[in-house]
Deep mutational scan, measured.
Amino acid sequence: MASQGTKRSYEQMETDGERQNATEIRASVGKMIDGIGRFYIQMCTELKLSDYEGRLIQNSLTIERMVLSAFDERRNKYLEEHPSAGKDPKKTGGPIYKRVDRKWMRELVLYDKEEIRRIWRQANNGDDATAGLTHMMIWHSNLNDTTYQRTRALVRTGMDPRMCSLMQGSTLPRRSGAAGAAVKGVGTMVMELIRMIKRGINDRNFWRGENGRKTRSAYERMCNILKGKFQTAAQRAMMDQVRESRNPGNAEIEDLIFLARSALILRGSVAHKSCLPACVYGPAVASGYDFEKEGYSLVGIDPFKLLQNSQVYSLIRPNENPAHKSQLVWMACNSAAFEDLRVLSFIRGTKVSPRGKLSTRGVQIASNENMDAMESSTLELRSRYWAIRTRSGGNTNQQRASAGQISVQPAFSVQRNLPFDKPTIMAAFTGNTEGRTSDMRAEIIRMMEGAKPEEMSFQGRGVFELSDERAANPIVPSFDMSNEGSYFFGDNAEEYDN
């Protein structure tokens, strides 16, 4: 993207840094990872977990959730003011799984939030270390993106479920800051804005008074975040219109849905970061690795190297396929839920299948599930090659597409044709070009129609051997075009429920 120079890199967003050079960025990201790792080690000690239990991804998720809940100030305040039966607002906890007599047992633990905050700050040299908290939120978000298709949420806001490739980060909490905003897809931002506008339509006082002023500035800020994701002048001009509207209503909703559809071809720039579970960072720190000293990046080879040398386990339900569970977590670790499966298959070195073909449910185990038949197995999170994460949407291309997802959002900077089903997408653009945004709409449609099938995206960008740390010898991959490109292809993934 041309304006790259004016933006802070995501590592800076990730670490609240002012302008830093590459070495400083690597050190501050490393410091953040160190903090998460030290916190995780301490929690495993508190909970008396064995090494194996500490490497269980379900335990990692519970521990991450506990610290996120302990620092969720708004919710904590709300819980104190609106006490609900049987919930102690000062405590947080969740299921911890232990191996007892050759069987997995679930144990519900409860801790004072104050105590968890103390352990977290102690692991982070006394700081609140917001960057580390956001990092864990993005890992949870990436896992949700890989596990669930947001059909219901899309339909509720009037969008087409086939636009799911635009929904990265749709389950990120509001408090995820600049680093969170960077990884949100165009569809996620559109959905947040539509929800806001709908509230304004239904509630006369939404934009009024002292609160209304705050609401208005939040609305304009979200519009600017979305505008910054678009790469064409016409899309940005249309966002200006939406932002400046005196009284946002149905016309703005129409414009936003139009823009979301246009992003299936004229893709937005959305950041991709490899955020790993805390149970990967903990053992690495415990083994003596100093992330701050060595430096770390979320968008280069580092996460690949770390996963190459990590042992992570997962509980497996009786009829689940461990290899499929591994694929789910591998995609989440690489922030690749909406990437082209052919690119992923090449990088991973084994075939990556669409969601609907995987015999696996989510990673988390519900409290009512029976533990008797639970097994555990090693997650295979290694890769054959590594590639640089991208934040450009890439230019655009036609490809055989599917009944489910009709476009992709690249996660890796790797040369390819970008699949999208042009006739299906263009069919949504018939007729409606009147109104105050008509010239911009016409211009956007013209650009979409001009998108050429034979153009290559990320020209000359390749993948790298894991021994090639400096990215000196790019390998331009070859793809098996007979395979499906979309992950949520004609899909039956479970729906995400809060």
Results as ranks from 00 to 15, higher is better:
residue 304 F to D: 01
residue 198 K to F: 10
residue 10 Y to K: 12
residue 82 H to E: 00
residue 92 T to I: 06
residue 429 F to V: 01
residue 396 T to I: 03
residue 82 H to C: 14
residue 173 P to K: 13
residue 362 G to I: 06
residue 435 G to T: 10
residue 383 S to D: 10
residue 13 M to H: 01
residue 284 A to G: 02
residue 358 L to G: 04
residue 294 E to N: 15
residue 21 N to I: 05
residue 160 D to A: 03
residue 144 N to L: 06
residue 491 D to K: 01
residue 5 G to A: 15
residue 201 I to T: 15
residue 288 G to T: 07
residue 150 R to H: 06
residue 332 A to Y: 08
residue 205 N to Y: 14
residue 65 R to D: 10
residue 394 G to P: 01
residue 236 R to D: 03
residue 168 Q to Y: 04
residue 485 G to V: 12
residue 451 A to S: 00
residue 218 A to S: 15
residue 178 A to I: 07
residue 485 G to E: 04
residue 47 L to N: 06
residue 324 H to T: 06
residue 145 D to N: 10
residue 87 K to V: 06
residue 137 M to A: 04
residue 236 R to L: 01
residue 109 V to F: 08
residue 287 S to C: 11
residue 331 M to R: 01
residue 478 S to H: 12
residue 278 A to Q: 03
residue 232 T to G: 01
residue 154 L to N: 02
residue 428 A to P: 01
residue 376 S to D: 03
residue 453 P to G: 14
residue 169 G to H: 10
residue 121 R to T: 06
residue 498 N to G: 08
residue 438 S to W: 07
residue 156 R to F: 01
residue 273 K to D: 04
residue 301 I to V: 13
residue 176 S to Y: 09
residue 100 V to E: 14
residue 333 C to K: 01
residue 493 A to F: 06
residue 210 E to F: 08
residue 157 T to P: 00
residue 24 E to D: 10
residue 331 M to K: 06
residue 134 T to F: 04
residue 467 S to P: 01
residue 111 Y to T: 15
residue 394 G to S: 00
residue 489 F to S: 05
residue 350 T to L: 12
residue 58 Q to C: 05
residue 161 P to G: 14
residue 38 R to N: 08
residue 435 G to H: 01
residue 473 N to M: 13
residue 455 E to N: 14
residue 127 D to F: 13
residue 141 S to C: 10
residue 472 A to V: 09
residue 307 L to F: 11
residue 351 K to W: 05
residue 207 W to T: 00
residue 379 L to A: 02
residue 257 I to W: 05
residue 446 R to S: 13
residue 380 E to K: 10
residue 320 E to A: 05
residue 60 S to E: 01
residue 159 M to C: 09
residue 380 E to N: 07
residue 394 G to Y: 05
residue 311 Q to I: 02
residue 133 L to R: 10
residue 461 R to A: 14
residue 29 V to H: 01
residue 248 P to K: 05
residue 479 F to E: 00
residue 495 E to C: 01
residue 47 L to I: 11
residue 475 I to Y: 06
residue 175 R to E: 04
residue 53 E to K: 10
residue 445 I to Y: 06
residue 361 R to I: 09
residue 320 E to V: 06
residue 32 M to C: 06
residue 346 F to G: 08
residue 493 A to R: 15
residue 292 E to I: 13
residue 202 N to L: 15
residue 465 E to N: 01
residue 98 K to G: 01
residue 21 N to Y: 04
residue 327 Q to T: 04
residue 344 L to P: 03
residue 496 Y to K: 04
residue 288 G to L: 10
residue 476 V to A: 15
residue 231 Q to C: 08
residue 131 A to V: 12
residue 337 A to T: 10
residue 400 R to G: 08
residue 75 R to V: 04
residue 339 E to Y: 03
residue 207 W to A: 01
residue 253 I to G: 05
residue 152 R to H: 09
residue 30 G to Y: 01
residue 478 S to Q: 15
residue 326 S to K: 05
residue 228 G to N: 12
residue 444 I to N: 03
residue 403 A to H: 13
residue 285 V to P: 08
residue 411 A to P: 01
residue 340 D to L: 09
residue 284 A to W: 13
residue 11 E to Y: 06
residue 422 K to R: 15
residue 254 E to L: 06
residue 12 Q to N: 14
residue 442 A to D: 00
residue 218 A to D: 07
residue 102 R to N: 01
residue 279 C to G: 12
residue 419 P to I: 10
residue 435 G to W: 12
residue 13 M to P: 00
residue 466 L to S: 01
residue 106 R to N: 12
residue 31 K to V: 04
residue 294 E to V: 13
residue 60 S to N: 13
residue 79 L to I: 14
residue 256 L to Y: 01
residue 299 V to Q: 03
residue 64 E to T: 08
residue 16 D to A: 04
residue 378 T to S: 15
residue 446 R to P: 13
residue 78 Y to A: 06
residue 224 N to Y: 10
residue 1 M to D: 12
residue 120 W to L: 07
residue 141 S to I: 06
residue 342 R to H: 04
residue 465 E to S: 00
residue 14 E to G: 01
residue 163 M to D: 01
residue 295 G to H: 07
residue 35 G to N: 12
residue 288 G to S: 11
residue 240 D to C: 01
residue 410 P to S: 09
residue 32 M to N: 15
residue 25 I to L: 04
residue 40 Y to Q: 11
residue 281 Y to T: 10
residue 126 G to H: 09
residue 457 S to N: 15
residue 167 M to H: 04
residue 233 A to S: 00
residue 165 S to A: 15
residue 248 P to G: 03
residue 467 S to R: 12
residue 112 D to Y: 12
residue 419 P to W: 01
residue 163 M to P: 00
residue 480 D to H: 14
residue 58 Q to D: 09
residue 111 Y to G: 00
residue 198 K to M: 11
residue 376 S to I: 06
residue 8 R to A: 00
residue 461 R to K: 09
residue 367 S to K: 14
residue 307 L to D: 03
residue 278 A to C: 14
residue 307 L to V: 07
residue 398 Q to M: 07
residue 278 A to W: 09
residue 466 L to T: 11
residue 328 L to I: 15
residue 341 L to G: 08
residue 416 R to T: 07
residue 4 Q to A: 07
residue 458 F to Y: 15
residue 363 V to K: 03
residue 229 K to M: 11
residue 309 N to D: 01
residue 250 N to Q: 10
residue 35 G to Q: 02
residue 494 E to T: 04
residue 268 G to E: 09
residue 143 L to S: 11
residue 309 N to R: 15
residue 123 A to N: 04
residue 133 L to T: 02
residue 392 S to Q: 02
residue 464 F to V: 03
residue 345 S to C: 11
residue 397 N to Q: 10
residue 368 N to A: 13
residue 433 T to M: 13
residue 298 L to N: 05
residue 287 S to P: 10
residue 36 I to A: 13
residue 253 I to Y: 05
residue 480 D to K: 14
residue 150 R to K: 12
residue 307 L to I: 08
residue 188 T to C: 09
residue 225 I to Y: 11
residue 456 M to A: 14
residue 377 S to I: 11
residue 436 R to Y: 03
residue 138 I to G: 03
residue 17 G to D: 00
residue 8 R to F: 00
residue 300 G to E: 10
residue 360 T to R: 02
residue 218 A to K: 03
residue 52 Y to E: 10
residue 111 Y to W: 05
residue 224 N to S: 10
residue 369 E to K: 09
residue 329 V to K: 01
residue 396 T to Y: 09
residue 433 T to N: 02
residue 418 L to W: 00
residue 444 I to F: 10
residue 252 E to C: 07
residue 435 G to Y: 07
residue 349 G to I: 02
residue 243 R to E: 04
residue 62 T to E: 10
residue 316 I to Y: 10
residue 288 G to P: 08
residue 309 N to K: 15
residue 385 Y to M: 13
residue 292 E to W: 10
residue 243 R to I: 06
residue 147 T to N: 08
residue 465 E to K: 05
residue 218 A to E: 02
residue 388 I to W: 02
residue 486 S to K: 02
residue 291 F to I: 08
residue 190 V to F: 02
residue 420 F to C: 03
residue 202 N to E: 01
residue 458 F to Q: 04
residue 301 I to H: 13
residue 182 A to H: 15
residue 492 N to A: 05
residue 444 I to E: 05
residue 442 A to V: 14
residue 490 G to L: 06
residue 357 K to L: 10
residue 321 N to T: 05
residue 174 R to W: 10
residue 195 R to I: 05
residue 479 F to T: 08
residue 479 F to K: 01
residue 437 T to N: 14
residue 491 D to E: 13
residue 210 E to D: 15
residue 418 L to S: 00
residue 293 K to G: 14
residue 187 G to R: 05
residue 192 E to D: 12
residue 398 Q to H: 14
residue 240 D to M: 03
residue 242 V to H: 05
residue 264 L to K: 11
residue 225 I to G: 08
residue 423 P to M: 04
residue 286 A to N: 12
residue 203 D to L: 03
residue 107 E to R: 04
residue 235 Q to F: 06
residue 317 R to T: 05
residue 110 L to E: 03
residue 366 A to L: 02
residue 179 A to C: 10
residue 450 G to L: 13
residue 130 T to C: 12
residue 197 I to M: 13
residue 210 E to Y: 01
residue 335 S to Q: 11
residue 396 T to W: 12
residue 320 E to N: 06
residue 231 Q to W: 00
residue 362 G to V: 05
residue 434 E to A: 13
residue 249 G to Q: 12
residue 24 E to F: 04
residue 333 C to N: 03
residue 19 R to M: 04
residue 97 Y to V: 08
residue 194 I to P: 02
residue 455 E to P: 06
residue 92 T to E: 01
residue 252 E to Y: 06
residue 193 L to Y: 00
residue 73 E to K: 11
residue 388 I to V: 08
residue 358 L to S: 01
residue 274 S to L: 05
residue 460 G to N: 04
residue 365 I to D: 03
residue 31 K to S: 06
residue 376 S to C: 11
residue 40 Y to L: 05
residue 233 A to D: 05
residue 168 Q to A: 15
residue 26 R to Y: 07
residue 439 D to S: 00
residue 436 R to W: 04
residue 436 R to K: 10
residue 245 S to T: 07
residue 50 S to D: 05
residue 355 R to W: 12
residue 492 N to R: 15
residue 425 I to K: 03
residue 366 A to N: 04
residue 11 E to C: 10
residue 164 C to E: 00
residue 455 E to M: 11
residue 480 D to P: 13
residue 232 T to Y: 10
residue 310 S to I: 10
residue 371 M to G: 02
residue 148 Y to P: 08
residue 132 G to R: 06
residue 426 M to Q: 13
residue 438 S to M: 07
residue 246 R to L: 03
residue 467 S to H: 13
residue 406 I to N: 14
residue 320 E to K: 11
residue 434 E to L: 12
